[in-house]
């Protein structure tokens, strides 16, 4: 009986230590905001949590896009918000008129933000438009926004956009089916 209890205790200690170790090596900037409404493109309120806890795309085995700004972002005071239904975005990724990701609150520097694209996504060439807005007194300083296309949480390709003299980063991120692994099944290491 004592032997069984000892074995169980050792297992609990071993697993507990492993869990504690995994927690300790997790970088502080990996706090992730995951969006629900992964495939429909509808904008849902951001919810904070660990990356692996809630994203629906992961369960669906699909694609997702990750945006990481090197500076603090905040809602854009120069946004057009005419009907009152749409709060100004701090960070936004869209594909044509389809909103992939909209963050209206502040996001800490280096905190990745994730949005799901769904399982059947990488079938054709796609282009995203992304923008992030820094506080106004950031004008003149350089900030970057890294965009990564992920499949099953593994990066396929990425692009980095930089500020150009203002407090806003805006640009496009193009992804071909090859990069998305849809035609060949291969995963391209980087976006060219």
């Amino acid at each position: 009986m004592m032997r069984i209890v000892s074995v169980l205790l050792l297992w609990v200690i071993a697993l507990g230590s492993l869990h504690a170790y995994m927690k300790s090596i997790e970088p502080p900037l990996s706090r992730t905001v995951a969006l629900s409404g992964a495939t429909g493109g509808a904008v849902a309120p951001a919810q904070e949590g660990a990356a692996e806890s809630s994203p629906e795309y992961a369960a669906a085995g699909g694609y997702s896009i990750e945006a990481t700004a090197t500076c603090e972002v905040e809602p854009d005071p120069f946004a057009l918000a005419t009907d009152g239904s749409e709060a100004p975005a701090a960070l936004r990724v869209q594909e044509g008129d389809r909103k992939i990701l909209t963050i209206t609150g502040g996001v800490e520097p280096g905190a990745p933000v994730l949005a799901g694209l769904g399982p059947d996504w990488g079938d054709r060439e796609r282009e995203f438009f992304a923008e992030a807005n820094m506080p106004l007194d950031f004008a003149g300083r350089s900030c970057a926004l890294r965009l990564r296309l992920l499949r099953d949480s593994a990066p396929l390709t990425e692009e980095t956009l930089w500020t150009d003299g203002g407090n806003r980063i805006a640009g496009t991120f193009r992804v071909s089916p090859v990069e998305a692994g849809a035609e060949t099944g291969e995963r391209a290491p980087r976006h060219e």
């Binding site: 120069f78 106004l136 007194d137 003149g140 003299g165 203002g166 407090n167 806003r168």
Partner: peptide
């Protein structure tokens, strides 16, 4: 353009 104006004024 207003955003650019603001950045220019700050500079």
């Amino acid at each position: 353009m207003l955003r650019t104006l603001d950045a220019w004024i700050r500079e």
